[in-house]
Amino acid sequence: MVNKQCKLFTSLATDTHMKNPDKLDAPKKSKPRVKAEGSDASKKQRKAKANGKAGKAEAQPLGTDAMATPRVKLVRDSFTMPRDEFALIATLKARALEFKRPTKKSELLRAGLQQLAALDDAQLRSALAALRPLPTGRPKKLR
Rank of each mutant, 00 (worst) to 15 (best):
R138E: 10
P82E: 13
A13E: 06
S11E: 02
K141Q: 13
L119D: 06
D25Y: 10
D84P: 09
R95N: 14
R125G: 06
P82M: 10
S106P: 02
E98N: 03
L88D: 05
P27R: 04
P27H: 05
A59I: 03
A127M: 08
V2Q: 01
A66V: 14
G55P: 07
A118E: 06
G137T: 05
K53M: 03
V34R: 11
C6G: 02
S11A: 09
A122H: 12
K104I: 08
F86I: 11
S42T: 07
K44W: 01
E98K: 09
S11F: 09
N20T: 04
P32I: 02
D121A: 15
L97F: 08
A127V: 08
L97A: 13
K35R: 03
T103E: 02
L108S: 00
L124G: 05
E85G: 02
P139Y: 03
L74F: 03
R101W: 07
A66L: 15
L131Q: 12
K53R: 11
K100N: 12
L108Q: 08
N51M: 15
Q123E: 15
V75Y: 12
D121F: 07
D22P: 01
E85D: 12
L108T: 02
G137P: 07
D25Q: 07
L142D: 08
A48I: 05
A90D: 15
L142N: 11
P70L: 10
A96F: 05
D65N: 14
Q123S: 14
G63D: 00
T14L: 12
K47H: 04
F99T: 10
E58N: 13
K31L: 05
L128Y: 04
A90Q: 12
P61I: 01
S106R: 14
D65R: 15
D25F: 14
S78G: 09
S126A: 15
K53L: 09
A13L: 06
L97G: 07
R83D: 14
L108E: 05
D121Q: 14
L119S: 01
V72N: 05
T14F: 11
G63T: 04
K100E: 12
D22S: 01
S78P: 01
A96S: 13
P70Y: 03
R138Q: 06
A59S: 10
R76P: 02
G52Q: 03
K43R: 14
K104P: 01
T14D: 11
A66N: 15
K140S: 06
D121L: 08
K4W: 00
E58M: 09
K93A: 11
D22K: 04
G137K: 08
V34G: 04
V2T: 01
M81C: 13
P82G: 06
D40E: 13
K44V: 09
R83E: 14
